[in-house]
Structure formats: structure tokens, C-alpha cells
Amino acid sequence: MQVIYLAGFPRSGTTWVANLINTHDQVIYRHELLGRCNSALFGNTLFNALKTQHGLTNSEYHQLSKLIKRADITTDRPPFFQKRFGWYFHPKLHHLAWLANQAIPSLAPLYRRIYTLNDNSQAHYLMKETRSLKDAESVLQGLRVENLVFLIRRPEAVIASYLSGIEKGMMPNPNQSHKARWLRENQNSEQISELLSTISRADDLPNIEFLSLNWVVYHEIVLRLIKKYSGVAIILLYEDLLADTVGYCRELFKRLGLSPCLMVDEFVKPSHSSAFDKKRLLSRDAKNSYFSVYRDATFQANQWQEKLQESEAERIEHLTATMYQKLCLKAMRL
């Protein structure tokens, strides 16, 4: 099984990038398979082994592979793209089958039988995750990952988007007990102590500062993983990808060992067109625009400047700038 593992801090644009990669006709996308399904799908024994053993036995790996390859509407997400495999060749039919299974849960076995590929398909399975990287080393070893991609978005933009999500009720609003527990768990972080020394109310962190610290600690782990997987790890900058989506995707496909693919153009151009209606049944990808993968003509990378006050942006930059600079130095360039 060939796995492409894509990770990024929440609100970094990972779902959009996952769909850019998913435009390739050899890629099968599994949306947050570990974060959303975890032990309910894998069973406690296998899931705990994946998180803690730093490698699986051949029998465990075979069991895990079957579960990753198994089609399921909870981890198959629109939009759907044409693939070179069986029924995947017809994306509109795939979307209709997915909608039918959503409406009639008893159709799940039929959906699974049609869209689960055999072991000889040569498909690359894309797994996208935005949850904690605490167990990432063990998970990556268990998955026997051949390609690892980290998406980095400017921290001001990430935090502004997250705060908008809190206001809309789309993202969890961390309470003080959650913040205090997180601080205790991460007090030995390489940078957390130094950053905390610049914060006046460690026991009552504003969301701006708490999310900034979260962002730094998350990417501290990213840097460790980049070093450990130096031969296969790729850092993508979200803003670079926005500026030249097709060019960066071509280079990314090359580095992932995938053949050139023109479907990226077909995904990007319609969603930028004023004639594109993402509310249509077979274009709709999410229940609301906050989680949509489409980037229409009005989308701007610097929208965060309208959301954040100048003092808030300066505070985020003060807490995150050093880490962001380190990540930028390691990013993929054309």
C-alpha cells in the first residue's frame, strides 16, 4: 500500500490541498481517517498499536491496509474526480452513489463493494490529518509512509480563520481548564517556556495567545519529523500554492512520484469562475462555505488583515515569527 500522508495545523488549508492532490487519477483520498474514525473503525487494539508501537507486525499492517482501502462515505468526500480505477472513472456517478448511501445507510455494503479497490490497483492512498502530532512518529512508522507532506500557512491567517470559526460556532472555543491542561502537558516544549515568559496571564490566556502557542508547539514537532524523514518529507507553503497552484502541484506530483496530471487545472479554473455554482448538488462539497474546498475569485490570502486588529497581528507575529521563518527556509520551491 502506497500512502501519502498530509498534515497541517487546523485552518491551514489542508482540505483544499488534499483535493488538489486528489485530482490526480492515481490518488484515492481518505479524509481524516485517523482523526474522525479512530478506534471505532480500527478497533482499540489495532488503533493503540498504531499510536504507540512505532511499527506494526505484518499481520497488523495487512489488517490496517484493508481498513484504509475500504470505501466509506465518512472518509470519502466530494468533490469527486475521475480516476483510472473501475467505477472511479465516473465521478458524477460516484457522487450520486455517495449521496444515495448518505440518504439510505443500508446501501453502505453496496457502496463499499463498488468503490473498494483490489490489492493490485497501484493506487496511492492520501490520508489528510489536522489533529495533534503527539503520536505522529509511531503512526507514520505503522503506516510505512513513503511520502510525507506538511502544509504551512501564515500563522496570522490560521488564527484569524480559527477565530472566525469560533464566532460562527464551527470551531471549539477552548476554555480555561483546557488551556491550563495544555500548558501543563507542553511545559517542557523547547520554546514554550521562553514564550510563556513574555505572557502576563499564563493562567488566563486569551485565545490569540493560546492559539499562537499551539501553532508553535505543533510546528516544533513538524521540524523534528522533517529531520527524521528528510528523504521523503515535503513542506508546502499555503501562500506559495495560492500564487501558482498549477505550477506547485506539478512539482509536488513529481516529488510524490506521480505522473503529470492536468485535472488540477480543471478543479482550479471552474471554482474561480463567476459561472461556477458550488451550491449545485454535484458541486457541493460542504454544508457551509467555512469548510468549503473551493477558492473563488473573491478569495484573498491576506483576508486575515481585515479580521485582526493591528495589535493582535503584532502579538501573533511576536510569538510565532521565529518558528515561521525556520519553516519557510525548508519549504519546497519551484
Rank of each mutant, 00 (worst) to 15 (best):
62 H>A: 15
63 Q>T: 15
64 L>I: 08
65 S>D: 13
66 K>F: 00
66 K>G: 00
67 L>E: 01
67 L>Y: 00
68 I>V: 15
69 K>Y: 06
70 R>T: 06
72 D>I: 00
72 D>L: 00
72 D>N: 06
73 I>F: 01
75 T>K: 02
76 D>R: 02
76 D>Y: 12
77 R>I: 11
77 R>M: 10
78 P>D: 01
78 P>F: 02
79 P>H: 02
80 F>E: 03
81 F>M: 08
81 F>E: 06
82 Q>H: 08
82 Q>T: 12
82 Q>A: 14
83 K>E: 05
84 R>M: 06
84 R>F: 00
85 F>N: 03
89 F>E: 14
90 H>I: 04
90 H>V: 02
90 H>M: 10
90 H>P: 00
91 P>H: 11
92 K>S: 13
94 H>R: 14
94 H>S: 03
94 H>N: 02
95 H>R: 07
96 L>N: 02
97 A>D: 08
99 L>W: 01
100 A>G: 04
100 A>K: 05
100 A>H: 02
101 N>V: 11
103 A>Y: 12
104 I>Y: 13
104 I>H: 11
104 I>P: 00
106 S>Y: 07
106 S>R: 12
109 P>Y: 05
110 L>V: 15
110 L>G: 04
110 L>P: 01
114 I>R: 00
114 I>L: 06
114 I>T: 05
115 Y>E: 03
116 T>N: 03
117 L>V: 11
117 L>P: 01
117 L>H: 05
119 D>C: 06
119 D>T: 14
120 N>C: 09
120 N>H: 15
121 S>R: 08
122 Q>N: 15
123 A>C: 09
126 L>F: 03
126 L>A: 03
128 K>H: 02
129 E>Q: 12
129 E>F: 04
129 E>S: 07
130 T>M: 12
133 L>E: 04
134 K>H: 12
135 D>I: 01
136 A>D: 06
138 S>C: 08
139 V>F: 03
139 V>R: 09
140 L>E: 07
141 Q>L: 15
142 G>M: 12
142 G>S: 13
143 L>K: 12
143 L>C: 08
143 L>R: 10
143 L>T: 12
145 V>W: 09
145 V>N: 11
147 N>A: 14
148 L>D: 04
148 L>I: 08
149 V>M: 08
152 I>D: 02
152 I>A: 05
153 R>F: 09
154 R>I: 07
154 R>N: 15
155 P>S: 10
155 P>L: 10
155 P>F: 09
156 E>Q: 15
156 E>K: 13
156 E>I: 10
157 A>P: 07
158 V>S: 07
159 I>R: 10
159 I>S: 08
159 I>E: 09
161 S>P: 04
161 S>M: 10
163 L>K: 13
163 L>E: 10
163 L>I: 14
164 S>I: 09
164 S>H: 09
165 G>Y: 06
165 G>W: 05
167 E>F: 06
167 E>G: 02
